[in-house]
Computed example of a mutant assay.
Amino acid sequence: MDRLTSMAVFVKAAETGSFAAAGAALGMTSQAVGKHVRLLEERYRMQLINRSTRRQSLTEAGRAFYERSKSVLAEMEAAEALAANLQAAPRGKLRINAPVSFGAHSLVPTLAQYMRQHPEVSVDLTLSDRLIDVIDEGYDAVVRIAPIADSRLIARPIGPYRLTICASPAYLAERGTPLRPEDLTQHECPGFSYWGRGPLREWHLVGPDGRHVVPVSSRFSINNGQALRNAAVEGAGIILQPCAMLREDLAAGRLVRVLPDYEPPPLPIHLLFAPDRRPTPKLRSFIDFVVARFGEG
């Protein structure tokens, strides 16, 4: 007989208090219930149930075996549910949050590809530079560009977020082109204002002569990356922004890289989601797709 079946019969007998009651609950005879229990006792060479004409009770070994059997059966049930989930087609609504610039320029094209592959999934994407609480605000997953501090969440790295320094040809013609990192202190460097805090006052750059920390300032700060890019195109100054957002402007000559031998250290990008022993097919497929698209590390 299957040991898992015998365990399930034993657990029912322990919970109902008699072979007859267990048999009635399981649709088998009391004799069949007793046979399952005896097989377990013989296999493990210990008595699990004290039997008398009037009542049955668990032995000390039986109580321990009962608790362990319940755990084994629960794990088996979870494994079967997971297997069923793995075979199910992704469907339903995904609620996703991402920072504005990364979401608009990198994540949206990826989501369009994902949705073509999974026509039964719909996506509700919110773009915000505010720090989102995944669990309390009901999101399936969020993208975060920063070191991860929330230990409640599972974090999957999806690649570095590379930044570049650039300005318009008109601005550089008027104000000159920086040749060394410290030259940035003499320029307008419009900054990105994060949610709840101002722009960076120092830019960290790495070049052939090592690491530089350069103080920067400007009369102009903006809380939207696309607007900051527009300001740079119009000659407002030198900006530090994501490569993905500036790629077309650089290729078209609307913007020009500044200090090409010096790069800001890339920022970590993670996909965060709540821990769950049974992730839904839609979430699992989304995570796998995004990790494959952007690459880990």
Score class of each variant (00 low, 15 high):
residue 195 W to I: 09
residue 190 P to H: 07
residue 195 W to F: 15
residue 44 Y to R: 11
residue 275 P to A: 10
residue 182 E to C: 11
residue 146 A to R: 14
residue 71 S to A: 15
residue 205 L to A: 00
residue 8 A to Y: 08
residue 118 H to Y: 08
residue 182 E to M: 14
residue 272 L to S: 04
residue 137 E to N: 06
residue 14 A to F: 07
residue 170 A to N: 12
residue 164 T to S: 09
residue 39 L to I: 08
residue 258 V to H: 01
residue 39 L to V: 10
residue 229 R to E: 10
residue 193 S to F: 11
residue 155 A to Y: 05
residue 58 L to Y: 11
residue 158 I to F: 01
residue 215 P to V: 03
residue 39 L to Y: 12
residue 224 N to V: 08
residue 128 S to T: 15
residue 21 A to Y: 05
residue 37 V to I: 12
residue 268 P to F: 06
residue 253 G to D: 02
residue 230 N to K: 12
residue 125 L to W: 04
residue 84 A to S: 11
residue 107 L to A: 06
residue 125 L to Q: 04
residue 29 T to N: 05
residue 199 P to E: 07
residue 254 R to L: 13
residue 155 A to M: 09
residue 234 E to W: 11
residue 47 Q to C: 09
residue 236 A to N: 11
residue 77 E to M: 12
residue 291 V to N: 10
residue 19 F to W: 15
residue 242 P to F: 07
residue 16 T to F: 03
residue 130 R to W: 11
residue 5 T to D: 15
residue 208 P to I: 09
residue 150 D to C: 02
residue 134 V to I: 14
residue 9 V to Q: 00
residue 26 L to G: 00
residue 132 I to C: 01
residue 237 G to E: 03
residue 51 R to H: 08
residue 253 G to K: 06
residue 112 A to Q: 12
residue 296 E to V: 10
residue 261 D to I: 05
residue 265 P to M: 07
residue 213 V to D: 15
residue 31 Q to L: 09
residue 128 S to R: 03
residue 201 R to W: 08
residue 253 G to F: 03
residue 237 G to N: 07
residue 135 I to F: 01
residue 187 H to V: 05
residue 226 Q to C: 10
residue 137 E to L: 04
residue 251 A to E: 14
residue 268 P to K: 00
residue 109 P to G: 02
residue 66 Y to N: 09
residue 62 G to C: 00
residue 74 A to G: 08
residue 89 A to G: 08
residue 249 D to N: 12
residue 39 L to A: 15
residue 10 F to I: 02
residue 141 A to Q: 01
residue 71 S to T: 15
residue 284 R to H: 13
residue 243 C to F: 11
residue 187 H to N: 00
residue 227 A to T: 13
residue 216 V to C: 06
residue 129 D to T: 00
residue 225 G to T: 05
residue 120 E to I: 01
residue 247 R to Y: 08
residue 27 G to D: 01
residue 278 R to A: 13
residue 198 G to D: 10
residue 150 D to H: 04
residue 137 E to Q: 10
residue 134 V to S: 12
residue 231 A to K: 08
residue 263 E to S: 13
residue 246 L to W: 00
residue 119 P to I: 09
